[in-house]
């Protein structure tokens, strides 16, 4: 029950935030600008794929920064004191934040991909082969990477003492984690979507589990 209340509450806070506005509107627009005026990409990479790449890198980073900064700020200002003295599970505070941000960026991702598909359809007079081939993979990988980046943001938020330290760890460390789902491919193995999903699912669960464990033991 407390998870539902907290999740709906966090969702209400995040979806109207300025960062989310950037994610929901800014990223698709930026993608469109890069695609239409980019020097070499126009004819080679479908816009759908470009959008997926943009979202998984910039969107993932933004989500993890947003989560880490939000948690550190609220710890510093002692916002959690009023939640922790109520009959709720401590972990629900973190899980609700993770779910709210993840849902928001997932919607942003779908919006950007939908825009990509529309533009590609319009440009090529029908759904291009490259798009249909890569659409599922793009969607799955984007969502997986975002989940991991968000979970990393939560963990960094829980362990970092200040916003500055948190931001540095997210930018230099947290974002690197999103390479994990494509690691087998980078190491020369054949691309395997199922394996990528398993890797990112397990990583996300481990990061969130660790965050909740540390948060539960924390003295406020």
């Amino acid at each position: 029950m407390s998870l539902k209340i907290l999740f709906l509450d966090e969702l209400r806070g995040f979806y109207r935030s300025k960062v989310m506005l950037v994610l929901w509107l800014g990223l698709p627009v930026l993608g469109a600008i890069l695609f239409l005026w980019g020097p070499d990409t126009g004819d080679e990479i479908p816009f759908t794929v470009l959008s997926a790449l943009l979202l998984s890198s910039i969107g993932g980073t933004l989500a993890s920064v947003m989560l880490a900064v939000s948690i550190i700020n609220e710890k510093e200002k002692r916002v959690y004191d009023l939640f922790l003295i109520r009959p709720i599970r401590r972990g629900d505070i973190l899980i609700s934040k993770f779910l709210a941000v993840y849902l928001c960026i997932a919607i942003a991702g779908m919006l950007a991909l939908a825009l990509g598909v529309s533009i590609d359809y319009y440009r090529m007079g029908g759904t291009p082969e490259a798009v249909s081939e890569h659409l599922l993979e793009s969607v799955v990988l984007t969502l997986s990477m975002m989940a991991m980046a968000s979970a990393a943001g939560v963990l960094i938020g829980v362990i970092s003492p200040t916003v500055l330290v948190g931001a540095v760890i997210v930018i230099y460390g947290g974002n690197q984690i999103s390479v994990l789902p494509v690691l087998p491919e980078l190491l020369g193995y054949e691309s395997n979507l199922a394996l990528s999903v398993i890797i990112s699912g397990v990583t996300t669960a481990v990061l969130m589990g660790l965050s909740v464990f540390i948060f539960n033991r924390k003295q406020f």
Partner: peptide
Amino acid sequence: DRIHRLMGYLPQKVSFQEWR
């Protein structure tokens, strides 16, 4: 958890999420 149902608390520096 049972105790928290009986309790109200005002911290020294009360702080809320500001967008609320």
